[in-house]
Design a protein around this nucleic acid. Sequence first.
DNA 1: AAATACATAATTTTT
DNA 2: TTATGTATTT
Length: 746
Amino acid sequence: MPPTPDHFLQNLTEPQRDAVLHTEGPLLILAGPGSGKTRVITCRVANLIHQGVKPYRILAITFTNKAAGEMRKRIEAMLPLRGMWISTFHSFGVRILRQYAERLNLDRNFTIYDQADRSRLVKSALEACKIDNVRFTPDSIAGAISKAKNQLMLPDRYAGQAKDFFSQVVAGVYEVYEKKLRAANALDFDDLLLWPALALKNDAELRAELDARFQYVLIDEYQDTNKAQYAIARGLSIDYPNICVVGDPDQSIYKWRGSDIRNILDFERDFPQARVITLGENFRSTKAILQAADALIANNTQRKPKPLFTANNTGEPVRVLQFENGLDEAEQVVQRIRTAVDDGNRHYRDFAIFLRVNALTRNLESAFIRQRVPFQIVRGLAFFERKENKDVLAYLRLLLNPHDDLSFLRIINEPARGIGKVSLEHLTNYAEPRELSLLAAASEAEKISAIKGKASSGLRAFAQMMAELQPLVDATPDELIRQLLDRTGYRKMLAENDEEDQERLANVEELITAAHQFHEEDRTRTIGDFLENITLASDVDGWDESQDCVSVMTLHAAKGLEFPVAYMLACEQGLLPHERSLMKDEDVEEERRLAFVGMTRAKEELNLSWARLREFRGQTLYAVPSMFLGELPEDGVETIDLSASGAGASRTMDFWRNGLERTRKSWYDTGIPLTPARTQTKAVVADAVPSRKYTEGMVVEHEVHGRGRIIEVSGHGALRKIKIRFRSGERAFIADKAKLTVVEKK
DNA sequence: AAATACATAATTTTT
DNA sequence: TTATGTATTT
């Protein structure tokens, strides 16, 4: 029984209905949090299909694979969907690149390099360029390359516009990096967007073909697309400009990754006839929550004001909880959750805890375990990032792509085969001018005179072994891994030893299970698909909703989700907003949007907390409540002081509201380390301020480097750095950590 | 070449 | 606190 259009339109508000019914021509939906965006999207697709549009003419782009799966499920509940593409931009890119591989002069079996691979490759490119004496880190250079790629800039054009020293260094590295990628038959994350974008630009025939194939394009979380992604969307919507983008500028939280809010302006410029529909009414949160979020985001100046309103109840006030320290915070939050569940009002799955940084999960983890409260930390890839699993995956990658030198280097001596750094240098020197992969070079190791005895035979044996494993790539994934573990000696390496190895072995076994399940779900999926799936997975993709447990995740991972009760922990200056954002107003505004995203996840109850003392990199510092707490309205917000010092309620927000008025940048000046850690008496606090005792011009004595003069002091608190000129050269230290004695004050 | 001890540096967010 | 690199020994 095919559902009638009424079916999709029931219970929709007028703007929602407009959005669903607008099928032809460009459409921009500005959807505030909780405005029923998902419903509109699914109904709109269902409506399209109902009107006779073939599912395979529709392309829907989501932000995570999980969101893609969810959307598919929801639409399928209404209509059959065979042939419709729903994926992330990156998965879409891979699919196009594999499909049109020959045409784009690509090997279909390319490996996808993640950011860790990228870092290592940049490092080796740096070495190849012989620029190891510069102070730029591989990561900063990798970041610059990534940014260039996001802006569709290839090495030659980048070199052309490189003016300052840094850009010029990057330009050189970028070119070598690209060559290395090509030689390894690998693409990095950015290439998965860059290549399709350029293909659409340069190959008119291909562009027209894909444009006609995907006559209806839908893009969710549009505020977080970058230039390359926009180029793809644009290229697919010229002959058939039925493109619908959905986003909320106030929820843009990936500027640091290249997302560009200007894409919204460009959309209206490139599609002047575009219809714009605003979904403002919130159906998710209580009035109290929404008002608090609204008041917060109103502090952003780079923003078009937009009303948030709801017909929902006022509900409980938003709570700001003050704790003595991070340990207390974790324990008491978990306890509050447990109490609510014990009282029978809630399930564990109703609760989410949001954090700005992953590193903050530690205290929570032990609190959950101690109080026996079920929880899951949503950090999807952690399992595959374990050394043993990465090793096994590297073996698989090398089997599938023998040119993958990075993987070769990872496993060539794992288990030990008597092949050390020097031998590998000889091997590289042999391989490079001959344009051989390291694996190919290894197979003819006897021709390399510089490599002797054990190393030489080890290399040849390795190449031989990989060749023998080759036919197994067609076996089932789990069988392949099992064989691989036996024949490479990896299992033997782990089998003989201590408990740590036992655990590693167990992890590898779990990897086999994962591969097995992956294959069982869909027998057509290969080991290559398995690897691809792991690389392109997002953090939330590992989130299991079916469990009745508390979810812990970063604010970034929380995007798009909702929970009856949300806790946002560590709302402290330096953490939220993060210290790395404090230098620029626009970065602070992004942090504020991040807080806004977190707050608007909550349906019924919202709790924000901070602690007076925060353990940080092994030492305890005084914390300053987040400036964002001071931006909340007094109405509908309740402040509760649960700290031992109990200085009375409401100090939190007064801190920011009233005259204290410290500049944002100065929070870490109050960060006074306590020694020894965890001591909380005021006496100890008072006398130790090592970070501030050094000044420029001082002469100091260092245990190792001898006497030197301080030439620069920067940063604050635990991050305070001092630069010292010794006879042997200049060196930088963390002020707190350096073992120095003052010889002469200036 | 590999194992070990030792020092020291670094820590946002992620497809 | 943890990961990474360096120097030293076997």
